[in-house]
């Protein structure tokens, strides 16, 4: 727990949350141990390292890659990643000719089992509003400038289908092991706002 909790008055929002949680505990709708376990899971166990393992496997195993692109949910589950907010996964491949990028214009839909919880910018108005009409400009804000000839595809997630980008394997990585490749893969590359670099 934050040590500052005892050294300053609570903010209004902290008071609202404590009031809500304490009433729900009293009414038997919330078990605090279950809440703690969920926080721990999504803070420490589920995150983009999962997705990076999927990407690295696809880079080294062409048959796995084919399964991943054809039946995303099942192929991801082969590596042990499944569950809430990833029940229907579609994986889209970035190539020299096509660059895919993900958004949820309506809210925050995101593939939790492979990427964890989304960053604030993904859930915020500037990204959600603009990436669908001005994707190249948005990608420049992330430091990614694409050639004019590259086709950009923007995928708007829904509460049912969740997308994940399979980034391009960087050149000069032929000698790396699967684990070493996974270490190169970033969350932002699997959203499609950056590329993987060596």
């Amino acid at each position: 727990m934050a040590s500052s909790a005892h050294t300053r008055p609570l903010s209004d929002i902290e008071i609202r949350v404590k009031a809500l949680e304490s009433l729900l505990v009293e009414k038997g709708l919330v078990d605090q141990a279950a809440v703690d376990a969920l926080i721990d899971k999504y803070e420490h166990k589920v995150g983009p390292r999962n997705g990076a393992k999927v990407v690295a496997r696809a880079w080294v195993d062409p048959e796995y890659k084919a399964r991943l692109l054809a039946h995303g949910t099942e192929a991801i589950e082969e590596l042990g990643f499944s569950g809430m907010q990833g029940e229907d996964m579609v994986v889209v491949e970035n190539t020299a000719d096509v660059h895919n990028v993900l958004v949820c214009t309506l809210c925050s839909c995101y593939p939790w089992p492979t990427l964890g919880l989304p960053p604030v910018w993904y859930k915020s108005a500037p990204y959600r509003s603009r990436v669908v009409i001005e994707p190249r400009g948005v990608l420049k804000e992330f430091g990614l400038e694409l050639p004019e000839a590259t086709e950009v595809r923007v995928w708007d997630s829904t509460s049912e289908v969740r997308y994940m980008v399979l980034p391009e394997r960087p050149a000069g990585t032929e000698h790396l092991s699967e684990d070493e490749l996974a270490a190169l893969v970033t969350r932002d590359a699997m959203i499609g706002v950056t590329k993987v670099s060596k």
Binding site: E14, V17, V120, P126, Y127, F142
Partner: peptide, 22 residues
Amino acid sequence: PINPEPNEPVFHEEWEKRVFGM
């Protein structure tokens, strides 16, 4: 502008964790 936060934590405040976990 989008202003992505470098090395962003999963949660920024304790209260966010409680809301998420409930």
